[in-house]
Amino acid sequence: MTSIAVSTTINGDDVEFLCNADETLLDVLRNRLGLMGAKEGCGTGDCGACSTIMDGRVVCSCLVLGAETQGREIETIEGMSEGQDLHPLQAKFIEHAALQCGICTPGFLMAAKALLAAHPDPSEEEIRFWLAGNLCRCTGYDKIVRAVQGAAAEMRGAKT
C-alpha cells in the first residue's frame, strides 16, 4: 500500500503526515500524531466519542479519511484550552460534575463547542438534539446539559 502525503492544519498548526488510503482521521490522530484525546467508542459514527471539528463543522473522525483532510482545518480536544486557561465549556464540565468516567467528554466538548458557535443561546431541546450523536452511559446527560447551558451563559456574558 502506498502512503499518501497530507498537509493539513490541526489546532492552528501546520501538520504533515503520511497515511494509507483507508486510514481514518481518527487513526491518524491517535496512531500517527499522538493526539489521543479523540476516542474510538464504536468506529461507525454512532457514539461521537471521536468528534472533532473540520472546517467549522463537527464530524466523527472515524468517518473521515485521513487523506480527505488535505488543506482542511481540524480542531481537536487538545487545542481547546489556551495554555493553562480552560475553555468555558471545559471549566463548566468540571464544575457541574458533567463527567464520570470521562471517555465521552472530549467528544461532547467538541460537539458543544460547535453548537455554541452556531447557536450561542440554545434551548434545552436544541442542546439535547444537537448532542444526540454523543453517547454517555454514566451521567444520564442531566449534568452535561446543565454544563453546556452554564458555559453558554458565561460565553454570552463574556461577549457583552
Binding site: G45, G48, S51, M54, R57, V58, V59, C60, L63, V64, A111, A114, L115, W130, L131, A132, G133, N134
Partner: peptide, 9 residues
C-alpha cells in the same frame, strides 16, 4: 439522517 456529526458530512 444521523447525528449532528453525520449531518456535517
Amino acid at each position: 439522517i444521523g447525528s449532528t456529526q453525520v449531518q456535517s458530512r
